[in-house]
Design a binder for these strands. Structure first.
Lengths: 230, 230
DNA sequence: TGGATAATTCGGTTATAATCGAAGTATGGA
DNA sequence: TCCATACTTCGATTATAACCGAATTATCCA
């Protein structure tokens, strides 16, 4: 047949719900041990162990041994990107209960997407940067303006360091919940870390993110963002 | 659980080898009938019919009825993009026979990727555009220079029309065989169509593309491309 | 060293879904 | 109208792989 990498092999790996749940969990966290991933996927430890071995074999995740503990993380940003791309073409979920609805809302509003901010907050933030003239919108990435160079420098984000990283600098990432773009790449990650550092946001379980009181004030004063409900 | 579109659902759809073969076939052609897709996937007509129904149900493909014939095509460029993204993270194929090797080589050198040129030719062409100063490289897309505006206009490609299309204009697409970028998006498609129109290239079976004699001369004279073996 | 904890491996069970022959439905054309 | 062609649906078969209890291995710590 066609001698090309077999995408169905990795698709099949991702197509199992337990494995998908584990990949999902790893999207928002920088490493998890086997028993935690088993819990996240709601399967037994032995089942999780088998699945993780397959994901490692398929080069979707990597394992690091720390004594008796084995920590797994995604193998590369390309894997995260593939998951997001699949999420864009996946059917929208069916909200079945109020508990699920409120959790869905929380995740929709603000969450981490791999290593940057997503959801309504991620999109609001990104659009505020654009509106303030710090970012300009390219076709698939954002460009930092001169004004933005100064803003991010004052915000304690060193753009030169970010540009030297071996990854995308300021990438547009289509947000599945807002269907607009949020800022990804090295700059997106730096913004996330900075906001955490300032305690303007804090992480909730399952990748949800909450804006703090301090954060509401900070976001309003620095960027004019007012819709920080959560 | 997590209330987010379920990427494992579409991954599972793509994870079946018969369905993957059909999606693959649709990457390079603008619509195929049921019996042709059954042949491509090497399954019976009834099996293909069942699979195609699932792909339609999952919104990965669309069907158009033409009397007794039903033509299927990919539902959107996003689906093609997802397939390419998965291909990037998929394991490299194992070349097993000489027949497979020569076919793999042919596909590696030049092929259509959705609706634009890929492989060595696609990459060479793209890099020639850059070297000649017609395209500038952005982070995730290409920018057409002033010099390029004139070149493409002289080459009978109307950039303004392309820019008004509701799709990416000039996108970087990571080539799985070359591990460098080729030109995708509306401009990538326009280039493919123009080269076909000029009879500089012609399509071979299974998405392979061959450079003609005329094409070798044309590509050399207009862009200095010399490695047009095939 | 022995017990506790983390994880892997083994093997049997069971659910899932791809597969195709047969039959049925839909469309085109003489 | 009848026959040919394209395609869908039905139902039985069979292959695949997820699952977990039990057993085993690996590591840590008192």
């Amino acid at each position: 047949m066609e001698s090309r990498p077999d995408f169905s092999y990795v698709a099949k790996l991702m197509g199992d719900s337990s494995r998908a749940a584990m990949l999902e969990a790893l999207l928002g966290l920088d490493g998890l041990p086997t028993n935690e991933l088993a819990r996240k996927a709601n399967v037994s430890l032995q089942t999780a162990s088998g699945h993780l071995a397959k994901l490692v074999e398929g080069n979707l995740i990597r394992v690091e041994k720390h004594g008796r503990h084995r920590y797994f993380r995604l193998a590369s940003p390309d894997v995260a990107h593939a998951i997001e791309t699949l999420t864009v073409i996946a059917p929208a979920p069916n909200i079945k209960s109020l508990k699920n609805f409120s959790r869905a809302e929380k995740v929709r509003i603000a969450r981490t997407c791999y290593d940057h901010l997503a959801g309504k907050l991620g999109v609001s933030l990104t659009e505020a940067f654009i509106q303030k003239g710090y970012l300009a919108e390219g076709e698939n990435d954002f460009l930092v303006t001169d004004k933005g160079e100064k803003f991010f420098s004052d915000f304690d984000i060193n753009l030169d360091v970010l540009r030297n990283q071996r990854r995308y600098f300021a990438r547009k990432c289509l947000d599945w919940s807002e269907r607009r773009y949020h800022l990804a790449g090295a700059l997106g990650n730096a913004v996330l870390l900075r906001l955490l550092d300032l305690h303007w946001i804090e992480k909730l379980p399952d990748r949800a993110v909450k804006v703090t009181r301090t954060g509401r004030v900070g976001l309003y004063e620095s960027l004019g963002i007012t819709d920080c409900k959560v």
